[in-house]
Amino acid sequence: MMSLSTVNLLTNARRQFNYKLKANAGLFVSLLAVQMLAALLSANGTVSIGWGTGNSVAYLRLISGDVIIIFSLLWAFTAGLTVAANAQRYDFVFVTNRLSSNLSSMAVLFILSAGGGVSATLCGILLRAFLIITKDGFIFTNISPYVLLIGICSAVLYSLLFSAVGYFLGILAQRNKAYAILLPALFLGLLFVEARSVGGTRHILSVIHFFIRESSLLIFALKILLTVALLYGAAILIASKMEVRQ
């Protein structure tokens, strides 16, 4: 009798994590591309005002890393979708079950989100430094270590949220292909309806406010982490009854 192997869930998820980090390495390349593109777009300033009296002219240019952050968050969302799609394909070649697959995907997305959030914030700083060196004029800037830290934390947290939403939708779409069409349609439809209904309840807006109108970093982090946990929990539940490679 051949001796049977027994495997521990977390041990297997760790092996899978290493495998999937390599398998999804292309996402780091696309992150770099997205951030470079965003930096180029914001190199001329996101807002610029000019005014003059007599023969003197003044320009005010607002340089910010916002575009880089927004692009990085969109990237985080697609990273979630990609990791979900790849998990369905690559994981089942080797040893796995659904829970192990989901846990390792989560770990991969945590790493990707951390990378995305940190690099997006730093990229914004780099952009400003580049402009300080190359452009003339007075520079007013406020990047204290504390502000920077808060910036990084919130960028990472937002990336976590966006990647978790992407992952959840990716798993849902595997469950039934119809969701891949229905959900974006529902989202866009709701967006239009709510934009036109002045004075009515705006669900999407209130969801956004729930996160962005939070002044305490700690509570903000709790809100994000709780939402992320709910999304992954739902993904695990949905995936556990799913068949492989239909």
């Binding site: 049977l4 192997s5 027994t6 495997v7 869930l9 297997n12 390599k22 398998a23 390495a25 292309g26 790849n86 394909r89 690559y90 089942f92 070649v93 040893v95 796995t96 079950n97 659904r98 829970l99 192990s100 556990s240 490679r245």
Partner: peptide, 23 residues
């Protein structure tokens, strides 16, 4: 189905496995 212990002791090979393109 969805069983890790069985998966650790079983390998399924067909004519085209979904392996990562970048490895």
């Amino acid at each position: 189905f969805n069983n890790l212990q069985v998966a650790a002791n079983l390998i399924f090979i067909d004519d085209e496995l979904a392996l990562p393109e970048n490895m």
